[in-house]
Nucleic acid binder design. Structure first.
Lengths: 132, 132
DNA sequence: ATTGCACACGTTATAGCATAACGCAATTGA
DNA sequence: TCAATTGCGTTATGCTATAACGTGTGCAAT
């Protein structure tokens, strides 16, 4: 799905994520948007739901946070499975697409007659800069 | 790390997970152990922390739940990265180990000079039995 | 033996993440 | 016009996880 014109709330949330250095939790986003009139978590979650649907934002399951897609203008859903390296020290996220990993995992699920819907690959650790 | 003798609380939590058909949340475990004297979430979380450390239980990040390792008696940490297929309908979990996927992902993180600590691979979808 | 340490445990409180349920307004298309 | 859809705002609630405190027990070093 490609992103249609974003609504005001969706734009605000997306802008916050784009300008952020790393992933943000929904409540952090909420705090950053209080001046813009945001009052409740649902305003953030509803916007995020759409942004995820449009493929312009990713959810990082292992840290309950959200990050803008590293490929501006594209729909990340078209890249196949996305893997993330998440630095537990500075929070920086590196995005990665690998067809071989896709192929391998999808081959396995098919052999199990399992029908995949959403795949998560997240590697937590320490980035080069933070590896003292 | 190999599992030493489990404490009472650790045994109780592990037993609940082993007897369960699928993954359980910490609070579900708590409810199942009220009769055994459990009163507070921390009792469950502390036991889980150890069981994860011993490699006899896995945490499923994408559904905030925990599941007993499919390889009784072994330490799953020694199998390399573990991937899970999680049925969103019946909750069943299939565990999977693939060295090629490991190799590919670890090759990538090394190329990024990223030092991996913990890797999560979770595929949510529908299992064979539930695929109507 | 006693001191000090490590560890498991219990309890209360609180923090952090996410959604249910209601109602309203604007838009669109039959 | 009417119905359906979508976004929005609000209140309330539920679920997930940890902080901070204190207790007891076992064990090793002195």
């Amino acid at each position: 799905m490609n992103a249609p014109q974003l609504t005001r709330n969706q734009s605000l949330v997306f802008d916050v994520l784009e300008k952020a250095e790393g992933p943000l939790s929904a409540y952090t986003i909420l705090d950053k948007l209080r001046d813009q009139g945001f009052r409740a978590p649902l305003q953030v979650y509803r916007a995020l739901e759409k942004l995820l649907e449009y493929g312009v934002v990713h959810r990082l399951e292992s840290i309950n946070s959200f990050v803008a897609c590293a490929h501006p203008g594209e729909d990340c859903h078209s890249h196949g499975i996305v893997a993330f390296a998440i630095c537990e020290s500075c929070g920086q996220v590196i995005e990665f697409h690998d067809h071989e990993v896709d192929h391998r995992l999808m081959g396995w699920v098919r052999s199990q007659k399992f029908k995949p819907a959403k795949t998560t690959i997240e590697i937590r650790g320490t980035c080069e800069a933070c590896a003292a």
